[in-house]
Simulated scan of single mutants.
Amino acid sequence: MDKLIRITTVPISLEKLLEGQLNFMSDYFEVTAIAAEKEKLEKYGRDVGIATYWVEMTRAITPLKDLKALFKMYRFLRKEKPLIVHTHTPKAGIIGMTAAKMAKVPLRFHTVAGLPLLETSGNKRKILNKVEKLTYAMATKVYPNSLGLKEIIIKEKFARAEKLKVLGRGSSNGIDTQYFDAAAYSEEFRKKLREELSIPIQDKVCIFVGRLVSEKGINELVNAFERLSKKHSEISLLLVGDYEKELDPLKEETFRKIKNDPKIFTTGFQQDVRPYFAISDILVFPSYREGFPNVVMQAGAMNLPAIVSNINGCNEIINHNINGLIIEVKNEDALKTAMEKLLLNSDLIKKMKNNSREIISSNYNREDFWNILLEEYRNQKAN
């Protein structure tokens, strides 16, 4: 059986972004997962029955640590002699693709699920541009997970168009529409959870799921909600996710508003976000950049319309006025207007709810994506 190595910077990407995919591939390949955070990686391996190999990697620019990781990974790949090395996330991409090239791995694939460098400038941007180009140069095939991302890569001249391919309709893993199904939650359950969170039963709830950081548009979201709640009392904002105070912290003013506003509720990171979608009315996702956001697909599968930024991925999942609204990036006024439009129009919300799950089920079903990727592996091997 051919060997397949999948590499991400940290294990949570294996758990969340690629959930179930490595198990599926293990029926066809001898699969090993590589990531940092040894204990978490080994737990992941035990939980899903996949072999693992620990290589310490950081999300920051750390040249000495990166060189150490590179040579450790190179030695492992040279010993294992896999047919395929497939990387995800920027740091795993540059280290994994370089090590695989050095080890003469025949098929070197890299999935691009977003470009953090788009929100940087100056010398840091120049460095990240070079790293991105080098990653793609070392790969034999690059898979942007959205059509918009593919166009950005071509525009930035990171790679030639013929090296790029979007699998299916986009995404890195599709969505398990049987798992994300609002029908699993009764009215009694929803009422009880709202009571536990102290969210008023009569309120319309806007939910955000993800990292509570600036580049996700949280500063604009909190400001827009605060302005809107002064006009309309029966609305609440539910924030599901952790803060990241080191890499991309929120403004101090935003922290204060979240803490002090009685209509803003936080849960911290949640392993299972479905109950929180189930008690909400709309997803608000004003991110500055994405690849192909799982959260928007998850919400859609749970019958939620979404307000999203006009960025790649988001504007491919959401059809304006069909299953959500698309607004300008970093535009607090546009965000407030869109929230008001949906929250005050029950018929519009109902129409979009009816469309949301069908669009996700038809275009982004998880097992369909797995089979598309498996076929791609086979085709690349044949070529």
Rank of each mutant, 00 (worst) to 15 (best):
Lys133Met: 13
Gly148Met: 09
Pro144Ile: 10
Ile127Met: 14
Lys124Tyr: 01
Ala137Glu: 04
Met138Val: 11
Glu151Ile: 09
Ile152Phe: 06
Ile152His: 03
Tyr136Ile: 06
Ala139Phe: 10
Lys124Phe: 03
Lys126Asn: 14
Ile154Thr: 01
Asn145Gly: 04
Asn129Tyr: 14
Arg125Ile: 00
Lys130Arg: 14
Lys124Val: 09
Tyr136Leu: 15
Ile154Tyr: 01
Leu128Lys: 06
Ile153Thr: 04
Leu134Gln: 14
Lys126Asp: 12
Val142Arg: 10
Lys126Ala: 13
Leu134Thr: 15
Ile127Ala: 14
Asn145Leu: 02
Ile153Arg: 04
Lys150Gln: 15
Tyr136Arg: 07
Ile127Asp: 07
Lys126Pro: 04
Lys126Ser: 14
Leu128Asn: 01
Tyr143Gln: 07
Ala137Ile: 10
Lys141Ser: 07
Arg125Asn: 01
Thr135Lys: 00
Thr135Gln: 00
Leu134Glu: 09
Tyr143Trp: 13
Ala137Gln: 07
Asn123Cys: 05
Asn129Gln: 08
Lys124Gln: 14
Ala139Lys: 06
Lys150Arg: 15
Met138Asn: 15
Lys133Val: 02
Lys141Val: 02
Lys124Arg: 14
Lys141Pro: 01
Glu132Ala: 13
Leu147Val: 13
Lys130Gln: 15
Asn129Cys: 06
Leu128Arg: 08
Ile152Thr: 10
Lys124Asn: 00
Lys150Leu: 15
Asn129Trp: 11
Gly148Phe: 10
Lys124Met: 03
Ser146Tyr: 03
Ile127Cys: 01
Pro144Arg: 12
Lys150Tyr: 08
Lys150Pro: 00
Gly148Ile: 12
Pro144Thr: 10
Met138Thr: 11
Asn123Tyr: 14
Tyr143Thr: 04
Leu149Val: 00
Leu134Val: 05
Lys150Asp: 02
Leu149Thr: 08
Val142Gln: 03
Thr140Cys: 00
Ser146Trp: 05
Ala139Glu: 09
Leu149Glu: 02
Glu132Leu: 07
Asn145Asp: 15
Ile154Ser: 03
Ser146Pro: 01
Thr140Pro: 09
Leu147Ala: 08
Pro144Glu: 10
Lys126Met: 15
Ala137Leu: 09
Asn123His: 05
Met138Tyr: 15
Lys124Cys: 04
Ile127Gln: 12
Ile153Leu: 13
Leu149Ser: 06
Pro144Gln: 13
Pro144Trp: 09
Arg125His: 12
Asn129Glu: 14
Lys133His: 04
Pro144Gly: 15
Ala139Pro: 08
Thr135Val: 07
Leu134Phe: 15
Lys130Thr: 03
Arg125Cys: 05
Leu149Pro: 06
Ser146Ile: 01
Asn129Thr: 12
Thr135Cys: 02
Lys126Tyr: 09
Lys126Leu: 15
Asn123Glu: 06
Pro144His: 09
Glu132Gly: 12
Leu134Ala: 07
Glu132Arg: 12
Lys150Cys: 08
Leu147Asp: 08
Leu149Gln: 12
Asn145Val: 14
Val142Asn: 04
Leu149Asn: 10
Val142Tyr: 08
Val131Glu: 00
Leu128Pro: 01
Leu128Phe: 08
Arg125Ala: 12
Leu147Asn: 06
Ile154Trp: 04
Ile152Leu: 11
Glu132Trp: 10
Lys130Pro: 00
Gly148Asp: 05
Lys133Phe: 08
Lys141Tyr: 02
Thr140Asp: 03
Thr140Asn: 05
Val142Asp: 01
Asn129Gly: 00
Ile154Gly: 01
Lys126Ile: 13
Ile152Gly: 07
Val131Tyr: 03
Leu149Tyr: 02
Leu134Ser: 03
Lys141Met: 02
Lys130Ser: 11
Asn123Phe: 13
Ile154Pro: 03
